[in-house]
Each structure stands twice: as structure tokens, then as C-alpha cells.
Design a binder for these strands. Structure first.
Lengths: 213, 213, 213, 213
DNA sequence: GAGTAAGCGAGACGGTACGTCGTGTCTTATC
DNA sequence: GATAAGACACGACGTACCGTCTCGCTTACTC
């Protein structure tokens, strides 16, 4: 029942962990996920293969951790850098009382993130992997997506209380009305993903969610 | 510019082509896309590896053709089998005058397709591959998705003429308001994909698209 | 018992046969025997593969015929070109009464042939193939070697009658005393193969074969 | 100049090396050199293909090492087994004062070796390969043949000092007078290779080398 | 402060699949 | 009916990675 030998994480080399993260992200960006290999990551990180296999079960798991680390570091950098906070992940969705404006702000930020060339390759890789591998997909959703979506739920509940959204609407469905079209366009590359598109989606969705006259 | 020797497709063995399609679909369903190999497909189809490499550039391309072939055959079977046609791909979206009802019908059918265990594995595999490989993704969209989406455009334009949808709405965006949430839930497996969900999405979306009172 | 279908050799294309011979010899000389392939010969000869498989059982057999053809043509060329005949294959070993001189003449000619860059590659290839493949070796010996060796037997018998060689000596063994060392040095490339070497071999061998004083 | 990454031979698995040797020899004997494949050797040895490619450049090189290992082991076995030594490779050619008798002893042993069914297949394969591949041939001569031939040189020099062989004779040529005919008959399979033949060759050759009366 | 046990870099190992090349058979169209 | 052309099933090639397994080496923690 017990795993064959749990490594002692207190003795883990932080230096190696970071090097592996960096190498993984760099390789995925440079050569793509498919051609990124564990051997390649190890070589680039100046690390033995076993050090990777000791701490991660798969290439996707390495990338997931690396990506979360990256997200964490960039959030931290943003947090310490300035007082004006646009990072919705850490701060939540603003509530100025104007639901449409607030959502447009957030969706535009999401569009910018999805279009960020540094984030694109790993995000696509992890998403694709999660689509095929249910276990990994669940982890992806739980660690990356859910925290973000929870912010929408919060804001939408507030909107319901304020009377901007009908009482009967399930926020988890409402949120998908906003996020779904964005992801669809980004994943399938059907048409360019722009701020204008985000705005339009918000307009239509909020229109559909608003109380009936 | 010219590829290094184009094979003569008039001499192509139809028997092999079909065997390869069948083997590819069977393996993807049985062992998953990752563990499906070209060697495995060749062995199962009773075919030399070279026969696969001669006609397809990659495992994903084989699967794409196999999938299109499957879709074509099932559509044909449905067409010849009965007069009552639920296959929207071949027939287009019905136009009974009731936009909400028509869309619910179609989206429920889409939900059923996505939940069909036979189609699930290959669809996920192709979608995931297309997310990472832009070239393949473009082909996927062009050959599989676009024809379906065109039907929505047609129906939505009719709805605009009938006054059920505002004149300024771009049908390609409206359609994503319907499809996006479905795909989002299916791809990320956040919550179960049901007829009820489809109905709700239609209600909200059409609400948002309807002419302002 | 009968082969599956004997082709009608009266309808055989001479043009193809020659083209195949030429292509085979050229390729063996240019890229070596190992890297010479049936496909390569066919392509170079502008011939279908089947035309080769129809008439020859193996790559080695093609080369053997090609080589015999080459030998025949060069002998013919030599025969029609001049009256002074040094081609021992067609003419036999000269008998001037001086056994040592006659043998030196012939062995020097053999040395020259073995050192001829045009003949080297195919000869080595056929010899090597014959060493490993007994059937092919037998054919090689029968068609190429035996006719040459028979000339030695003739000359050595004459020498026995003339009293230059002991009566009890088996000419087939005596001949190997002359040819063996030459071939050994040529095949294994232990030391350079020169006229001086040929002369010395003749001196020693004839010394050993001469009547005891 | 440097090869693309030299493996660390101190970490080499001796178990694998021996298994590969054994498998190579067994397969060459059982199915012949042509039909012996690297894949076959690896499978039979229970070894990954890469382990062969890591340490040897070609099938022939594997066989060469295997053969030398075999020769070494059999010599060792002979050396430890009894005091009466007939293994000329380890002990040199005996010098009883009777040159003819000594050479006959050695050449008969060589005949026995060449007729040994265990040694025949690999010896033929290596010889044939060396005939076509100059590099391999040089290695074959250097590692297998030269050490044996050096013994002849030693014995023949002693014979020259004892006055059994003329002073002017080059031992390297004299030796070919003995070995050449044997190899010729064995390689080309013209006639059976017997003790009687070896004796006759010695008689003729020594006759030709002896001081002129 | 010596002993020892873990993580570590390195990389050899048994494997699986890759994508390519050549074999010998077969089919199609041409002469 | 032989031919040029080449698709086919098959088998082997040599390479790339996989995940496991030693090796020494370094670096804590324990006695």
C-alpha cells in the first residue's frame, strides 16, 4: 500500500528543483511539449535523471509544478512591485458596482494572458495533456483553474445580491458562459482573441443573465 | 517545394486504407492515444509500417482521416436508414421558427455525441493534438469543425431575419456563446455534461442575443 | 519440383540485361558491394525490379554474370585487337621450355589483374560471398576459377613430361603452391602484391617441385 | 576527431558483454552470418540493442571480439588442462631440430582448426568481411593472424640459423608458401583439406626453401 | 569529528517505438 | 508475354527516450 520508498523532502535540493523548473519551461517554449524530454530537461538543468524521477511522476507533472511556480513568482513580483493591483488571481475580481465593466476588465486581462507568448506554450501543453489524461486534467483544474473560477463565483454572487443577475442562475454556469467562448477561440484558434471579443462576450452573457424585465 | 516523391494514389490499396482506419480507431479507444503507436496500428491492420508512412505524415493525421471516415460512414448509415433525420451535420439545423427549441435540440445532440464512448477517445485525442500542433489544429478545424459551425451560422442568420436575434450580432460570436461553454465543460471535465446544461446554456445565450426590449 | 514458372528466355530483353550488368559493376565499384542493392541496380539500369528478380536469384548472381560478361568482352577485345596474345585465359600458359620463365610471366599477369582497380571490387565481392555461401562459391570456382586452373594443370603436366617437375607431384597441388600465396596476400592485404613477389614464389615453388638431385 | 561521446568503459557490464559474445557465436553457427542480425543477437543475449551499438560499430566487430574471446578462453582452458601443449598459438612452434616434422605438426593442427565445425562459421564470416572491408580486414590480420604468423617467422629464422633454410629467404614469404595453399583450398573449397595435403605442402615448400646443393 | 545515510550528477542498462531502407512478391499499364 | 513502374507485407536498421539501476561524490545529521 505504501509507496516503495518516500524520499525525504526535507533534504531536497532547492537548487535542482528550480533548475528543473526553468529548464522545463524553457524547453517547452523553445522546442514544444512533444519534443521536450525528461532527458533533455535533466541535461539542460545539469541534473541527474533520477532527481526528476524521484520527485515527479511524469513530464506533465514537472511542467505543471514549473508553471505554478512561474505563476506564483510573477504574482509575487506584481504584488511587491506596485500598489495598483490588476492581478485578479491574488486580489479577486473588483467590485465597482458595474458588473459589465468589472467583467470586461477581467476578461481582457485573461485575453492578454492567453496571448502572452511566454505563457502560451506551457498552458497549451498542460491543457492538451489534461484533455487526454483525466487524472492530470483533474489536477490541472483543481490547482490552476478552480482558484480562478472561484473568483468569478464570488463576483457573480455579489451581482445576484445587487440584482444585476437573476436569482435562479447558477454562478458556475454563468461563469462558463463567459470563459467558455474565450477558451474555445483560443484552443481552436478559429479567430483572433481580442479585447473587442472579450467585451462582446461580456455584453451578450450579462444580457442573458440579467433579470427579465 | 515538391515533396520528396509523391506516391501514386490511383494505385493505393483501399483494403489497407480501411484496415488502418479501423485499427487506429480501435486502438485509440482501447489503450488511449498515447499508447497507440504506428507500429501497433500497422500490426493490427496487418499492414507494413511503410504503408502508413507512405500516406500519412503522423499518427494524428491517420486518426483524423479515420475519424472523418467514421463520421462519413455513420452519417451515410443514418441517411439511408430512416427518414427522420437527427443528424444535423448532413441536414443542417432545423428551423421550426422556435429558435430556442431548435438550438436545444441540436445542443442536446452534441452533448450526446460528446458523451458517446466510441467517439470520445478519438475526439479528445484530436482536439488535444490540435491544441498543441497549430498545423494539425487548423486542419481539424477546417475539416471537422467548420462544416458544423457553418450550420449554426445559417440558422442564426435566419433567426436574425426573423427578428429573434439582434441585427448587430455576429453569428460567429453568437455561435461560440453556445458551443464554447459546452466544449469547456467537456474538455476540462469540470462538471457533468447533460441535456439540462445544454438547455440552460441556450436559454442564457438566446436571452443575451435577443433584441433589446 | 519444377520452379514456379520458368520465364521464356527467348523473349528476354538484351538491352535490359546489359544495362543491369553495367549498373551492377558500376555500383559495386563506386559504393562497394554491401551498399549495392537490387533496387539501386534497377534504378540505375532504368529497369523494373522484377526484371532482375525474373532472371537472377540474388545480387551475387547478378554480379557474377556481369563479371563474366566483362571478362568475356575484355578477352574478346584483346583477342581481336592484336596478334601478340598475352591473355592466358584464352590462350593457355605459354610453353617455351623454360618453366620458371613461363610461370613468372603468368603469375605477373595475375598480379596485374588483381591490382587492376576496375576488377578489384567485383572480384573481392564475389570471392567473399563465395567464402560464406558454399553454393555460390562452388559456382564461382566452377565458372571462373577452374578454367584458369586447368591451364596450370596442362602446363605442369607438360613440365612433368619434360622432367622439370617430379613425376609423383599432383599438378592440382603444385598449382596451389603457386596461386595460394598470391591469393593469400591479396585477400588479406598483409603485404603489397608485386612482380618481385610473384617471381620469388615461382622460384621457391619450382625448387620444391623439381626432381631430387 | 573525437567520437561523439565515448562511453565509460569502467562501468561496462561484463555480464552483457559475455552474453553478447555467446549469442553472436551461437547465431553465426546456427543460421549463418548473413541471417545473424544485431537485433537477433540482442534478443538472444537478453540485452538492449543500444548496449551493442554503444560498444561495437558493426556486426562484424561484435563477432571479431566474440571470436577472440573464444580463442582466448579455449587457449586458457588448454593451458590449464595439461602440460603437453599442442596449442601453437600460446606455445610457439616446437623446435625439435626436424623442420619438416615440426611444420607438419603445426599445419595439421591448423587443418584441424579449419575443419572444426564450431570455428568454421565465424572464421569464414570474418575472413569474408575482411576481404571486402579493408579496415576490418586490417584489424583481423593484426589481432588474429599476425600473432600466429609471427611464430612461423621465429621458427623459420631458427631453421635458417640451423642451415635448413637458405639464408636469402624472407621468412614472411616462406610462411606464405605454407599457409597460402591451405587457406586457398579452405576458402574456395576446391578440394578437401586433409592432413595428407598439409604434409605434401610442407614437403614441397621446405624442398623449395632448402639450401641449394 | 568520524561515521553514515540520504540526495545528487552521471550514465549504463533492458526495453519500446521511431522513421527509413531494402527485400522479394504482386499488380497495373505499355509495348 | 516481357517490361518499367511502383505499392505492398515484412524485417532489420541505427537512433532517441523511457524508467530503473548502479556508481562515486557531497552534504547533512547522528553518535
Amino acid at each position: 500500500m505504501a509507496p516503495t520508498k518516500a524520499p525525504d523532502s526535507s533534504r531536497r535540493s532547492d537548487r535542482s528543483r528550480r533548475a528543473i523548473h526553468d529548464a522545463a519551461l524553457a524547453l517547452v517554449t523553445e522546442v514544444g511539449y512533444r519534443r521536450t524530454t525528461i532527458e533533455g530537461i535533466a541535461a539542460r538543468a545539469g541534473v541527474g535523471k533520477q532527481t526528476i524521477y524521484r520527485w515527479w511522476p511524469s513530464k506533465a507533472a514537472v511542467l505543471m509544478d514549473a508553471f505554478l511556480d512561474l505563476a506564483g513568482r510573477s504574482a509575487e513580483g506584481a504584488g511587491s512591485g506596485g500598489e495598483a493591483q490588476s492581478d485578479e488571481a491574488a486580489q479577486g475580481i473588483p467590485d465597482t458596482g458595474d458588473l459589465v465593466a468589472d467583467l470586461k476588465l477581467v476578461l481582457r486581462a485573461t485575453v492578454d494572458e492567453l496571448n502572452d507568448p511566454v505563457l502560451e506554450a506551457p498552458t497549451r501543453a498542460l491543457t492538451a495533456e489534461g484533455i487526454v489524461d483525466a487524472k492530470l486534467g483533474a489536477e490541472f483544474v483543481h490547482r490552476l483553474l478552480d482558484p480562478q473560477l472561484a473568483l468569478y463565483v464570488t463576483r457573480l454572487r455579489a451581482a445576484q445580491e445587487a440584482g444585476d443577475v437573476r436569482a435562479g442562475v447558477d454562478p458556475r454556469i454563468a461563469l462558463e458562459l463567459l470563459i467558455g467562448p474565450l477558451m474555445h477561440r483560443w484552443l481552436l484558434r478559429t479567430l483572433p482573441l481580442t479585447h473587442a471579443y472579450a467585451d462582446e462576450i461580456v455584453d451578450y452573457a450579462v444580457g442573458g443573465l440579467a433579470p427579465r424585465p
